[in-house]
Design a protein around this nucleic acid. Sequence first.
DNA 1: CCCTGATTCGC
DNA 2: GCGAATCAGG
Length: 161
Amino acid sequence: MDWTAEAIERLKALWAEGHSTAEIGRRMGISKNAVVGKAHRLNLPARPSPIRRDAAPRPVPVPRAPRPMPAARITPPPILRASPMVAPAPAPVAATPVVRAFPVASSRPRLGSRTCCWPIGEPGTSGFRFCGGDPMAGKPYCTEHAALAYVKPRDRREDAA
DNA sequence: CCCTGATTCGC
DNA sequence: GCGAATCAGG
């Protein structure tokens, strides 16, 4: 780029009009880098930069804010009414002896949505979801998860101490 | 992946 | 001095 006085004037004018560097570049047939480089060298008033290369260089920006966690943990995995204190493998949370079937009120599978409501992953984390598989007739869970959810009292008696 | 502007650095 | 490359945030 031949930075003639005219070219510089034009740059200043466009810059003053508030065009983006890329736009100025387009209008002048040069790259935005040329524009921003020249503008910088001319000490034209800097635009609000999207980035921050200095100021507040916080090495540990978030020293672990104790996160407030939604009042109640989600979804204690389900327990059959007739099986006192047998918690299914994943995420045993509430130890209430008798838990009504699915406390899963709040998320994706809406109440009528006929998909398996078995929770997968850690509640509150991005990966958290529900199984979503085909539920067994009359059950909120698919066959695999129903097997985990409903523990037969007989079986329990045998392997429970 | 698109945009933004700033800085770096070989030319 | 120049500007592509690179960075870094939205």
